[in-house]
Design a protein around this nucleic acid. Sequence first.
RNA 1: GGGGCCGUAGCUCAAUUGGUUAGAGCCCUGGACUGUCGAUCCAGAGGUUGCGGGUUCGAGUCCCGUCGGCCUCGCCA
Length: 591
Amino acid sequence: MLRTHTCGELRKEHIGQTVTICGWVENKRDHGGTIFIDVRDRFGRTQVVVSPEEGEDVLKLAETLRGEDVISVTGQVASRLEGKTNPKIATGEIEIRGHQIQVLNRSQTPPFYPNQEELPGEDLRLKYRYIDLRRESMQRTLLLRSAIIKSMRDYFAEHQFIDVETPVLGRSTPEGARDYLVPSRVHPGKFFALPQSPQLYKQILMVAGYDRYVQVARCFRDEDLRADRQPEFTQLDMEMSFVDADDVMAMIDGLMARLAHQFLDLELQTPLPRISYAEAMRRFGTDAPDLRYGMEIVDVSHLAQQTAFRVFRGAVDAGGYVRGIKVVGQASQFSRKRIDELTEFVKNDFGAKGLAWFRVEPDGSLWSPISKNLEPPVLAGLQQAFDAEPGDLLLLLADSWEVTCKGLNGLRKRLAAELRLYEPGQFHFSWVVDFPMFEKDDETGRWVAMHHPFTSPLDEDLPLLSSDPTKCRAKAYDLVINGYEAGGGTIRIHDSTVQQQVFELLGMSPQDAGQRFGFLLNALQFGAPPHGGIALGIDRIVMLFGGLDNIRDCIAFPKTQRATDLMTEAPGEVDATQLRELHIQTVPPGK
RNA sequence: GGGGCCGUAGCUCAAUUGGUUAGAGCCCUGGACUGUCGAUCCAGAGGUUGCGGGUUCGAGUCCCGUCGGCCUCGCCA
């Protein structure tokens, strides 16, 4: 070892010892005679003092040091002078008298410093990620991530789960997200796909009798990025045999309680609250509602049927809805300009035709640019439906079910953030359950599986598979934390006739199904136990637990929004030779 | 593919309705200084205003295009 101690561990009790520390020069304060150097490693910061009595050589060397140089310092631990301690750092009561300094490596002047007060632009941080990762907050997050993953692994190990690795090179399955493809050199014209999740493998492990499987698995999806979405991300993937949905959720309840206790100092009440998909859509307009605050959606479609006002009446006559939310007591905060911004927001982002709004006047009446179009009983009905008090602001959308859901969810989230309807350290964990089995694909108009085609229907909904599949609900459950989908899972079909029925509903012939998932269907015929599981988004959980607002800050080497790596400049060009070996020809993008 | 915000010194930012030689702090270079911890003080260096066009007597500022970063809709079983 080149050192005897880290930069974070020396205390008063070490006074008198001769030690060697190594680290980066964080700061230098040169008084001409005496020089102070703060040496930093990931464990902390220690002050080194070089005074003239240490000798000409070491003093001269100390003068030349610059930020981010890597040095080792040998010297005696000493008490700081009376009144010169630094309570801001853990080692602030001591300092090292720098008898000997060795420069292990000089640093060029870096584009930015890890301790600079204003964060540089994110592109710079990503290009020089090795410097960005020296920042204390990045190190704190990666340490948190490491600790969370360790705790998860410990938990599952304690519950008899076996960690099994599954392939990264797999077979492309056309459903779901776009695949990242890997060409096969050995098989011209054929491709591997990187896994979107280890879904099929873990089911096969259940057939193989492993009973409880867990893996920290890297997953890949070639879709556009968001603040909470990366093209490669990490799942805590698990699967259990001989269980139903309650068992899987209970297992995760235990994990979440453990993590919340350990990392958030929060005692979760388990079982975690559950809400059905239908209720979530009705009350919050999303399958991942943020339950830290209210501002629930109110449906006033029944009133819209009683008015001649075309905007409202037209929406319901066309099979749509009039629904809205109430901003309590904040009407005065909403200028015309701000409401116009919200209107543009729902138009641009969710395809709403407009935004209707009402201010509740001191006398309790509703004022709005459109109130003259509404009959007094309708206005009274609105006020009653929203339980509107003076000072409240009502925001309504008259549109299809989907647009009212998306728009009101968007408004609700945006306003909650702007109006600070929740505290920074506040958390809400819940389950959303009873998802529909099927949803309509807007492009093709076909029915597709909402989760995946192996999801089991609810037992009581089995008859609906033949009578009214759209009403059929699935044994699917999503873990939602503060409005983010933190995980999702299902109980799988283990009955081949049910599986066939589902394939048929999805428009898949037995031949189609066999071609796509033959290996799984085969496996299911050789003694498949009832089984189910879940995958948790580790990056998102770290993001939430760390109080961060973007997933890149929880990943050591993330991609930009355009799915590139600014540090390595991946993706990059490859040699023609490589392409030839892979039997690949590239076609320039069409205009 | 659509909507939005941003791009000025190595970094973070400023620059009046379009108007003189584009400024500040930090960093960097040199100097002074024996107890600082955002050290201090003095001096200095540092600019293709992302890039390319255009409008104008005159563009960091306005217009068009383009590149890059971020937010978002679509997309993400």
